[in-house]
Design a protein around this nucleic acid. Structure first.
Lengths: 129, 129
DNA sequence: GTCATATACCTAGAGGTCCTATGTATGACC
DNA sequence: GGTCATACATAGGACCTCTAGGTATATGAC
C-alpha cells in the first residue's frame, strides 16, 4: 500500500475549492455547458472542464468522472466529434468539436434551460423585472 | 384485457400539455419546488403538484411517480411531516407541512439554486443586466 | 538525473432521482 | 350506475453524476 505520487496531487486539488454545492443540480445541465463551451471552437476534454470552472469562477467543478463519460455519450449521439492531436504543451489530446447536430442541440437545450429557470423562478415567486 | 375506466382519464391528462421538456433538468429541483410550495401553508400531495403546475402555467408537470416518492423521502429526512385529514371535497388526504428543518433546507436550496443558475448564466454568456 | 507537479486520458461501480406503468379507492355529478 | 377527477401508492427501468481507482508523460525544481 505505497502512496502513489499522483495521489496527493489529486487530493489537494479536490480539497482546494470543493464547494460541495450542486450535488444533483448539475444533472441535466452538463451537456449544455459542454456544448456551449465548444461553440467558440474545438477544445479538448481537460480544457473544457477548466474553461467551465474558470467561467464560473470555480462555482462549478467538473469532475473527470462526469466529464469523460459525458463526452463519450455525446460523441455517440452525434453531437460531437473528435480528432487526436497535440496540445500547446506538446501533449496527446482529443480535440472535440460540435457537429451540425450538436449545434442544433445547443440551441434546443439553451431554450429549454431558459424556460425551465423561468418556470422555477415563478414558483419561487421572483418578480420577472 | 378490458380497458379500465380510469385509464382514459390518465391518458388525456398526459396528452394535454405534455411539454416533453425538462427530462433531466428537474433532477435536483423538485425538492426545492415542493418546499417552496409548502412555505405558504400545509397542503396535500396532489394539491402540491397542481399548485406547481399552475404556478408555472403548465410548463412543469409533476408526475405522481416522482411526487409521492419525493414526499416520502423528504418526510424521512425530517423536512416535512404530515397528518391524515379530509379535503374540501371530503376526501382522505395527507396534509403535509414544513418542519423547522424543512424551512432551513428551503433557505439553503434557494440560495444554491440562485448560485447555480448564475454560474450557468455566466457560461451561457448572458449579461447580468 | 530524478522527483514532484500539472496535464491528459480512462473506467467500474455506487448512489440517487425521475419516469413509466400499474394499481386501488371514492366522492360528485349526470 | 357510469364516468370523471381526486387522492393515494409502488416496482422497475433508465439515466446521470461522483468516488475511487488507474495510466502516461512533459516540464521545471533540486
Amino acid at each position: 500500500m505505497t502512496r502513489l505520487p499522483w495521489l496527493r496531487t489529486r487530493l489537494t486539488c479536490i480539497r482546494g475549492t470543493m464547494p460541495k454545492n450542486t450535488p444533483e443540480l448539475l444533472k441535466g445541465t452538463l451537456d449544455l455547458l459542454i456544448l456551449k463551451t465548444l461553440e467558440s471552437g474545438p477544445m479538448h476534454g481537460y480544457a473544457i472542464a477548466r474553461a467551465i470552472e474558470e467561467a464560473t469562477e470555480q462555482a462549478l467543478q467538473i469532475e473527470e468522472g462526469s466529464l469523460y463519460p459525458a463526452l463519450y455519450r455525446m460523441t455517440n449521439r452525434g453531437l460531437l466529434r473528435f480528432e487526436w492531436g497535440l496540445s500547446a504543451a506538446n501533449r496527446r489530446i482529443k480535440s472535440y468539436r460540435l457537429t451540425a447536430r450538436g449545434r442544433k442541440r445547443l440551441k434546443l437545450e439553451t431554450a429549454n434551460w431558459g424556460q425551465f429557470t423561468q418556470a422555477v423562478a415563478r414558483v419561487l415567486g421572483e418578480q420577472p423585472a
